[in-house]
Design a protein around this nucleic acid. Structure first.
Lengths: 202, 202, 202, 202
DNA sequence: TATGAATGAGATTTCATTCAT
DNA sequence: CATGAATGAAATCTCATTCAT
């Protein structure tokens, strides 16, 4: 029963945050979304904080999984392919849905003052940066690679952020296009990709 | 007395949000920061919401002012100069201080579910986008200009976001450098700036 | 559980009003009277106003019930019998108890500025007037009947009011006697009851 | 200056109570009605309670004055004339105005739990009762006179109460008519006034 | 395992009063 | 004499959590 309930409640948490925001996402509202009583949350997660932490973990796991899946499915081992997969993973369907996006941003803000969330968020940030950096280093000097990684990471998060804030939600196709274009520019600048501007993503 | 108290309380609000986050920034804590009693907040702002709205307005005004000041001080009327000034203004000292940055992000998250904040945030977003778009259109076709504006706006916000989340705070110099580099790439790609990569900001 | 708690809290409300008056009847005091916590009031009644409205409704229902019961138990269908039953019902035990009487008067005053209470009070007033009028019309012309109804309604309310204000509380027996005497006078004046002054109420 | 301010504030108190009721008549609202600052109330009346007490005293004085004036102006020294004057005084213009009527009722309710107001109200009640009783005793036995006095007092208060509660306000003419009619009945029943039913008030 | 009744802490807001100017 | 800035107490309401069933 436990894993079912936990999953159910995590999903309900995202739905509640999507609906009214983190500040108004009371345990009762979350419980109602899940179709259970409020008391059960303390039973399975020790309390509201536990549920929020579990929810953030879930989101990070989903994101991580989306990226990993795409990278493992690559036939091309080039840096561009890997970085492209990272971009694609970050704008994966599960991530850009309303609930996930808003929950994501809510946790970002919240993480500034909650050590547990901060740690989770930090680990995730590092992973994105490290992965990007590693791939960029295969085609450019260390210093340039670090800047490229920082720039692309900022671009991804910025697109995400603006998408979450837009009432209509993130336009994933456009976001991916902009990110890939930027990637092309970064790689082009180091002469490793003459045909960059002609490459297109579906 | 009123303008003094209002300013004092707005500053205290940022300090409190910087210290413990928006969720824990109670009127009592804010009042303590300002060295006044809690009741005075309702007296001058009608309530907590009024104070929060006024605080967000203040931040937006500061940002707007920082950008405007730099653009009016330009001797060079080129698109690159204007866009550079917009970037600089966005990473202005008053904006990147801990309190302002965290308050900023807190409002971002909060604005998703509070119509008043949402409107303020939307207006600000549009202004950034419109200004960038206008300048880019002077040197590239409309469609490319729009993408460039979207990309640069995302980059600015992304750098901002990651800076706010980093425990040490935003490294303004690095952020500006990355933004300017990206700007160079955008302009270079349209052949209007051969020496782009050699231009540097102080 | 709900009906039990609601009843319990309504009774506690009357007790609190009896003790310290409506203005000082805080939710905490009411809750203490009921032996429960203050929060439960908002849970069951949505808030203090909901509780006050429910309490007034209860009082009106009790009054209405007291009158109806006596009228249905009548063997005599004469106007005098019906009107007598109305008088008796209005000075029924449940109505003249300290708590009910003071709550009653408190609501009267309060109803002048609270639309919900005003509506309840108005409906009740009309019912008393209409019932009296209808019965009086059976033995006197319409115009006289209306005046008789107005006079007797005023008399009933006046006795009630003065009873509530008297420190010792309403002397129900005396009040009933005065009301019945007045009724006799009203009927006598229309020659329908020669022995009016000799008829006595238990 | 003092008597002017006191009068001004007492009048403003009635206006505020008329407007929003005693519970919502804050010192600020009263002060605004008087066109002065809130602090002045404590200065002249020692506090809000002092102002309320002064206001109730004013109302009682007005009532008392209205009755006395009419009784002193009588040419006829008969009981009926005196009692008639008492009735007329009670439905005097200054008493039945919206502000006075609502303030009156508000104090009635309030007096049940505030000793100072209770005393004032008690003295006033006794005076009405004693005066009526005294006059009735001139034409009927003590016991009957007491009942007549009680009945008429209740009638007056009842008409007053119902008038105050009616949205359109008290219909003074009708109230006086009903009261006089009742008076006639009381006197007629003791054979002291054959032409009672034909006597009419203007 | 799950409910929902109940609590108590905490947050916002209102308001009478005080006091320096 | 009068103002209005400021306080602090009190009141209502919300909400996470607990616990008996």
């Amino acid at each position: 029963m436990e894993p079912i309930r936990r999953q159910q409640l995590i999903k309900a948490t995202m739905a509640a945050i999507d609906e009214v925001g983190l500040a108004e996402a009371t345990v009762m509202r979350i419980a109602r979304h899940a179709g259970v009583s409020a008391g059960i949350i303390s039973h399975y997660f020790g309390g509201k904080d536990g549920l929020l932490e579990a929810t953030m973990r879930q989101i990070l796991t989903d994101l991580s999984g989306a990226v990993s899946a795409r990278r493992h499915a690559l036939e091309d081992n080039s840096p561009r392919a890997h970085i492209g997969a990272i971009i694609e993973g970050n704008f994966d369907r599960t991530q850009v849905t309303g609930p996930a996006a808003k929950t994501w941003l809510a946790f970002w803000a919240s993480s500034m003052h909650k050590p547990i969330l901060q740690r989770l968020q930090y680990v995730n940030d590092r992973r994105l940066y490290t992965n990007l950096c590693h791939q960029f280093q295969r085609v450019m000097p260390r210093h340039d690679a670090r800047n490229a990684a920082r720039g692309l990471a900022a671009m991804i998060d910025g697109l995400w952020l603006r998408g979450a804030l837009t009432p209509e939600g993130l336009d994933a196709a456009e976001a991916r296009h902009l990110a890939h274009t930027y990637l092309n520019q970064l790689l082009t600048h180091h002469g490793c990709l003459e045909e960059a501007s002609t490459t297109d993503i579906h």
